Measured scan of single mutants.
Amino acid sequence: MLEGKVKWFNSEKGFGFIEVEGQDDVFVHFSAIQGEGFKTLEEGQAVSFEIVEGNRGPQAANVTKEA
């Protein structure tokens, strides 16, 4: 699992990017966010995740919000 911070997330469109120190930003789709209820992320929020190869390159999977 990697750790990063949410760079930005558009809850209307359901996607955004996660910043990872020393690496390129990683695309995140709302469907990759773990948990119940409305799936969104806040700018600057700490998250842990895995990287998988998507249709358009690397993207986040199994995203969990850090306490």
Rank of each mutant, 00 (worst) to 15 (best):
M1Y: 13
M1D: 06
L2W: 13
E3V: 14
G4M: 01
G4S: 03
K5T: 07
K5L: 05
K5V: 07
V6I: 10
V6R: 01
V6D: 00
K7F: 04
K7G: 04
K7L: 06
K7E: 02
W8G: 02
W8F: 08
W8L: 04
F9A: 02
F9E: 00
F9Q: 01
S11Q: 13
S11K: 15
S11E: 09
K13E: 04
K13G: 05
K13L: 10
K13D: 03
K13Y: 08
G14A: 03
G14Y: 02
G14T: 02
F15V: 08
F15K: 02
F15P: 00
F15C: 04
F15I: 08
F15N: 03
G16T: 00
G16K: 00
G16L: 01
F17G: 02
F17K: 05
E19Y: 13
E19I: 15
E19R: 15
V20C: 05
V20L: 14
E21G: 11
E21W: 14
E21N: 14
E21C: 06
G22Y: 08
G22M: 07
Q23S: 12
Q23L: 12
Q23P: 05
Q23H: 15
D24W: 11
D24A: 13
D24G: 15
D25Q: 06
D25L: 08
V26R: 03
V26T: 07
V26L: 09
F27H: 02
V28L: 06
V28K: 00
V28E: 00
H29C: 04
H29R: 04
F30S: 06
F30V: 08
F30K: 07
S31I: 05
S31P: 04
S31L: 08
S31K: 11
A32P: 01
A32Q: 09
A32F: 06
A32D: 15
A32E: 07
I33R: 01
I33E: 02
Q34V: 15
Q34P: 07
Q34H: 10
G35L: 07
G35C: 05
G35P: 03
G35E: 11
E36L: 09
E36Y: 08
G37M: 06
F38D: 08
F38T: 08
F38Y: 13
K39N: 06
K39S: 06
T40H: 12
T40M: 10
L41S: 02
L41P: 02
E42H: 14
E42W: 13
E43I: 14
E43V: 13
G44R: 08
G44L: 04
G44P: 02
Q45L: 09
Q45H: 10
Q45K: 06
A46N: 13
V47F: 01
V47R: 00
V47I: 08
S48R: 14
S48P: 00
F49K: 00
E50Y: 13
E50T: 12
E50V: 09
E50D: 11
E50R: 06
E50Q: 06
I51L: 13
I51V: 13
I51Q: 05
I51G: 02
V52S: 10
V52M: 11
E53F: 14
E53Q: 14
E53K: 14
G54I: 07
G54A: 11
N55Q: 13
N55V: 14
N55S: 14
R56L: 15
R56V: 08
R56E: 08
G57V: 04
G57K: 06
G57L: 05
P58F: 11
P58L: 10
P58H: 09
Q59D: 02
A60L: 02
A60Y: 01
A60R: 00
A60H: 01
A60E: 00
A60Q: 00
A60P: 01
A61E: 08
A61R: 09
A61L: 09
A61Y: 11
N62A: 08
N62W: 11
N62V: 07
V63A: 03
V63W: 00
V63R: 00
V63M: 04
T64E: 08
T64F: 12
T64Y: 11
K65D: 05
K65R: 13
K65N: 08
K65L: 14
E66L: 15
A67E: 11
A67I: 15
